[in-house]
Design a protein around this nucleic acid. Structure first.
Length: 826
RNA sequence: GCCGGGGUGGCGGAAUGGUAGACGCAGUAGGCUUAAACCCUGCGGAAACAUUAAUGUUUCGUGUGAGUUCGAGUCUCACCCUCGGCACCA
């Protein structure tokens, strides 16, 4: 390309296609597992879902991460930067139903199209390591993971209230429910009691809260902490009173974070779904209770969670006994108590909890204040719940203690009397992985009716359980696989008698919880990952991707890694030691891009118009990467013009003129100070200022029309460095110009230049002079002059002299090479 | 309500407590063109005063209000707006 090209014109379409093919042919991005003398470094950007089209968000996520990976490669590391496809999932199935194709065909076609689009980006992806989560060789290992988790008691089948998406006809994990709606279909989620497969991610709740040694954004760490939702308190037992006198065997357990308010309990509230409700409700109240429970069931999660609505509830007719005061406490049910958090029951402390306060007001239940702001016993009626900590009152021997002390003493007492225990409660629940849909990895389980068999895991050597192609995959609420006799009917591995397969498939987040491991040895048939592959590449040194995965993919992956460690599959604790989350690229109107808003920017059209290099650099230039922001259709012309100017600059040398003054110092200065800034900026993800600095260098060099003969060395160096410096961000034009300069090897196989700090310094500089902190003048002086010289030079300045005249100088502040501030009387 | 970002020209944004607005877009004046442009060059925070004029001088200016400092976009406190996450979570 470089020889044939017309040297006048920058034609991105031509050179980009040429070099992409050439790189492919030479395999310059195929990364060996080991290069002697080089450190391995694993860079990864979240792989795309196979929707069929690379959208601008993918480019926004991948262009900077590619730039970063290329930079570290030039810095001398052996950098792995793989790519693959997250290919299982509901959208494939829904699209196939709509378009009358098969999910597999739909997905495979999309992969072909997306791979092509990804190559147009000019990324240094190592395509030899591509993974496709819907391929048999991949999902064999997804199923293998299930078996390992099962073997180690981290997977279990359990009956529970689960989230049901009535549109997609499948269950959802809690993480997939946003504001009571399915994150995919948007349908209002229903609660159904079903028997499903779960992973015990809660076993790792405490460890997942620990982000020490993880270089992650604070916001993402905070989101995970919020999601896990740790609360410390106690679980307290309230015995149920039977026939007014006898104490029944049944006990109500409640969780509270405020045991110090225990003496303020005036009622008990159970969730309507609480299993004890039937047993304790007295006959007088059973009609009302039954009706309330039916009403609750009919409510959507959103109605139920609404904060504005008035509290509702019904008395059960039953009472329980306060564990310390022995008072009789009425038991109510109300939908403000969630059946799935804590024990599904709360102790009502209206004086110190806003919700309980509202409930007590509504049903005229007593309100007893037991915590006060100060030691004076409050006599005033509370108008609101007092939710702060304070000093105990009305609490027998605990009076006058502060909340924290009282909390400890009360729990001690409860523990002694076996009426309660210290308890840590987490908001996070176990991960529900069963899906009643077709396009996913089948759960490798066989159900056998014979004695002693029951739930039988598929033996590892029988994996993969392949997904049959000929299946009626219309959603029916049951897995489509259950309609396929050939799939369902099998023999029990234990007793060899006829048995049936599990027909649910696995949540696709399972596929993405371990894909980063597979890139290290994608074709390994005997292990999930070999010891060597693990040593070579894991954990990921730099992960990048959107923060919308904070409580799903990123949390699940951490769980997988820790589980793998405990199952002796891997050795480390964390999959991603450094993680950076980019912001979201918005439509030109500053709104989230969506077809309905008509503000979607198609990347393909932008590349055709401007070329991948200009498009990549504009995406990096438009603002700080972690902030995202609107895409400006007229802004991208800026980076295109820049590359055009740069092209001209590199190919047209200034005129040599012996008579003019030497410019070597000037050229070295702009060259090396840019190199310094670019080096530091890329390493700290400041891609926008990196591009700005490169533009400045281009502009400054362009103003030099003539050089002295002696300047040629410095000039050539500057041009060479310029090509090297743009190589990570604009790989195609860099390569083309590099060859046009007469170099033979790829620019991407060259080393990143090292800046020489002394070149970045100048001999003179302009120092601002302030009077009383206000800028009054700026004078050029030599670097490093002392205070008295600076002051006398300043006083010679006409303007400064005018200010200082007839005034007392109170103070002089001189920061060498920065500024001079003269403080005078007014 | 709780947690975490962010408020700077017409717009995107830059700025280790030290010349606010780098770099770019749009705008505008000019050049090259038959004509244009995704070509080249110049000028762009606001106001007041002075000067025939280019210009000069001063004042104001980084969401609001206080404070620390010789000096604050930057630090401290209070508040407002906005984006994202969590939420009848006991």
């Amino acid at each position: 390309m470089s020889e044939k090209n017309n040297k006048q014109e920058y034609n991105p379409a031509q050179i980009e296609e040429f070099w992409q093919k050439s790189w492919d042919k030479d395999g310059i991005y195929n990364i060996p597992d080991v290069i002697k003398g080089k450190k391995n470094r694993y860079h990864l950007t979240m792989f795309p879902y196979t929707s069929g089209d690379l959208h601008i968000g993918h480019w926004y996520a991948m262009a900077p991460s590619d730039t970063l990976a290329r930079f570290y490669r030039m810095k001398g590391d052996n950098v792995l930067f793989p790519m693959g496809f997250d290919a299982f999932g509901l959208p494939a199935e829904n699209a196939a139903i709509k378009g009358k194709t098969h999910p597999k065909d739909w997905t495979d076609q999309n992969i072909i199209r997306m791979r092509k689009q990804l190559k147009k980006m000019g990324g240094m992806f190592d395509w030899n390591r591509e993974v496709n989560t819907s391929s048999e060789e991949y999902y064999k290992w997804t199923q293998w993971w299930f078996l390992q988790l099962l073997k180690n008691n981290l997977a279990y089948k359990g009956k529970a209230l689960v989230n049901w998406d009535p549109v997609d006809e499948t269950t959802l994990a809690n993480e997939q429910v946003i504001d009571g709606r399915s994150d995919r279909s948007g349908a209002l989620v229903e609660q159904r009691e079903m028997e499903q497969w779960f992973y015990k991610i809660t076993n790792y709740a405490e460890e997942l809260l620990n982000h020490d040694n993880l270089n992650w954004p604070e916001s993402v760490k905070a989101m995970q902490k919020n999601w896990i939702g740790k609360s410390e308190g106690a679980e307290i037992k309230f015995s149920i009173l039977k026939n007014d006198k006898d104490i029944s065997k049944e006990i109500i357990n409640v969780f509270t974070t405020r045991p110090d308010t225990l003496f303020g309990v005036t009622f008990m509230v159970l969730a309507p779904e609480h299993p004890l409700v039937d047993q304790i409700t007295t006959s007088d109240f059973s009609d009302k209770i039954t009706k309330y429970r039916i009403d609750t069931k009919l409510k959507t999660e959103i109605e139920r969670q609404s904060l504005v609505k008035e509290k509702t509830g019904v008395f059960t007719g039953a009472y329980c006994i306060h564990p310390l005061s022995k008072n009789h406490i009425p038991i109510w049910i109300s939908d403000y108590v969630s059946p799935t958090y804590g024990t599904g029951a709360v102790m009502g402390v209206p004086a110190h909890d806003e919700r309980d306060f509202q409930f007590a007001k509504k049903f005229l239940l007593p309100i007893i204040q037991v915590v006060s702001k100060n030691t004076n016993i409050a006599t005033e009626q509370l108008t609101n719940a007092f939710t702060e900590k304070g000093v105990l009152i009305n609490s027998q021997q605990y009076n006058n203690l502060d909340s924290d002390t009282a909390k400890e003493k009360i729990i001690d007492c409860l523990e002694n009397e076996k009426k309660g225990v210290r308890k840590i409660q987490y908001r996070m629940r176990d991960w529900l992985i069963s899906r009643q849909r077709y396009w996913g990895a089948p759960i490798p389980i066989i159900y056998c009716d014979n004695d002693g068999c029951g739930i039988v895991p598929v033996p590892e050597e029988d994996l993969p359980i392949t997904l049959p192609y000929n299946v009626e995959f219309l959603p029916t609420g049951k897995s489509p696989l259950s309609l396929n006799e050939e799939f369902v009917n099998t023999t029990c591995p234990n007793c060899k008698k006829p048995a049936k397969r599990e027909t649910d498939t696995m949540d696709t987040f399972m596929c993405s919880s371990w894909y980063y491991m597979r890139y290290a040895n994608p074709k390994n048939n005997t292990n999930i990952i070999s010891k060597d592959a693990e040593k070579n590449w894991l954990p990921v040194d730099q992960y990048t991707g959107g923060a919308e995965h904070a409580t799903m993919h990123l949390l699940y992956s951490r769980f997988f890694y820790k589980a793998a460690r405990d199952m002796k599959i891997l050795e480390d604790n964390e999959p991603f030691t450094n993680y950076f989350s980019q912001g979201q690229i918005l439509g030109t109107d500053g709104q989230r891009m969506s077809k309905s808003k008509g503000n979607v920017v198609a990347p393909d059209a932008q590349i055709n118009k401007w070329g991948a290099d200009a498009f990549r650099s504009y995406l990096m230039f438009l603002g700080p990467w972690d902030q995202g922001g609107p895409y400006d259709l007229s802004g991208v012309v800026g980076t295109h013009r820049w590359l055009n100017r740069l092209w001209q600059l590199v190919l047209s040398k200034p005129i040599k003129n012996k008579k003019i003054a030497k410019k070597t110092d000037q050229i070295n200065k702009i060259n090396h100070s840019t190199l310094k800034k670019v080096t530091l900026d890329i390493a700290s993800f400041k891609f926008n200022t990196m591009i700005a600095a490169l533009m400045e260098l281009t502009n400054e060099l362009s103003t030099i029309k003539e050089i002295n003969d002696d300047d040629e060395v410095a000039w050539d160096k500057a041009i060479e460095y310029l090509c090297l410096m743009i190589a990570p961000s604009c790989p195609h034009i860099a390569e083309e110009l590099w060859h046009l300069l007469g170099k033979n090897s790829s620019v991407h196989l060259n080393s990143w230049p090292i800046f020489i700090d002394k070149y970045t310094k100048s001999i003179t500089q302009v120092i601002p002079i302030q009077i009383n902190g206000k800028l009054r003048a700026a004078i050029e002086v030599s670097v490093g002059i002392d205070e008295s010289t600076m002051l006398s030079l300043a006083q010679k300045n006409k303007k400064i002299a005018g200010y200082v005249q007839n005034k007392n100088i109170l103070k002089v502040i001189y920061i060498q090479d920065k500024l001079l501030n003269i403080v005078i009387t007014n």
